[in-house]
Simulated assay, not measured.
Amino acid sequence: MALLVSYLILILGVVTRSAYAVQHIVGDSNGWTNFGDYTTWAASKTFNVGDTLLFNYGSSHGVDVVSKSDYDNCATGNAIESYSSGPTTVKLTQPGPMYFACPSFGHCSTGMKLAINVVSQSSNTPTTTTTTTTPSDGSNSSPPSTTGPSTPSASKPTKDAGSATSANMVLIGLSLVLATLFVFMC
């Protein structure tokens, strides 16, 4: 009986922690297109470690994760990660600045690029900071100024087939089943 109670508390703790992960749909209902204002879109969001970015786009687009210098110059030839079969989900695994651009000719220069700053979930009280870092290409540049602590290390994204919402639903369902069993056993 004590083992069941301990197990239930553990499951509820996992559900509570995972419920804080957010899936950000880049560009909201418009998706990842030539017509988005991604600077304004990102300014209204807080991106935490564990969140995901969902890029919805058609076959004429793609998503490249790039350095700050490549972001500034719309150069996608040295992409850190490259995706071309949308939709693409990128998991935010580390705090720090991240830069994205569409690799299709001319798209980045017309505004199809995104700069975000990923913050640690343990940071409950964001502060405004600006940090200067040296990217791996050796140029000296600054990450985007944003609300939240900055860390000079860049996140390496992972392509995630599922979403945080699906995982949350499974865990919540499992918790409800276990809670029901607990009630009937007592």
Score class of each variant (00 low, 15 high):
L3D: 14
L3C: 12
S6R: 13
S6Q: 13
Y7V: 13
I9Y: 05
L10A: 14
G13R: 04
V14G: 03
T16F: 14
S18M: 10
A19Q: 09
A19F: 11
Y20L: 09
Q23A: 11
Q23Y: 02
Q23G: 02
H24E: 00
I25L: 13
V26M: 04
D28V: 06
S29R: 07
W32S: 00
W32P: 00
T33H: 05
N34S: 15
N34A: 14
F35D: 09
F35Y: 13
D37E: 12
W41C: 02
A42V: 04
A43M: 11
S44P: 02
S44I: 10
N48Y: 06
N48V: 03
V49H: 02
G50I: 03
T52Y: 10
T52L: 03
T52D: 13
L53G: 00
L54Q: 02
N56S: 05
S59I: 01
S59G: 10
S60T: 15
H61L: 01
H61M: 00
H61W: 02
G62E: 01
G62R: 06
V63L: 04
V63P: 01
V65A: 09
S67V: 00
S67F: 00
C74I: 08
A75C: 10
A75Q: 07
T76W: 03
G77W: 01
G77A: 11
G77F: 01
N78S: 15
N78K: 08
N78D: 05
A79F: 02
E81A: 14
E81N: 10
S82Q: 15
Y83E: 04
Y83F: 15
T88N: 05
K91F: 08
K91A: 11
L92Q: 05
T93A: 10
P95V: 04
G96K: 03
P97S: 08
M98W: 03
F100G: 11
A101K: 05
C102E: 01
S104R: 07
S104G: 07
F105S: 11
H107E: 10
C108P: 02
A115Y: 01
A115C: 01
N117H: 09
Q121I: 12
S123D: 13
N124G: 12
T130L: 14
T131H: 06
T133K: 04
T134I: 05
P135N: 04
P135T: 01
P135E: 06
D137M: 05
S139C: 08
P143D: 08
P144T: 14
S145M: 12
S145Y: 11
T146S: 15
T147V: 15
T147H: 07
P149W: 08
S150Y: 09
A154K: 06
S155R: 01
P157I: 02
K159C: 04
K159V: 09
T165K: 09
A167W: 08
A167L: 12
N168A: 12
N168C: 08
L171T: 07
I172W: 07
G173S: 14
L174E: 06
L176E: 09
V177R: 06
L178W: 12
A179P: 09
F182P: 01
F182L: 15
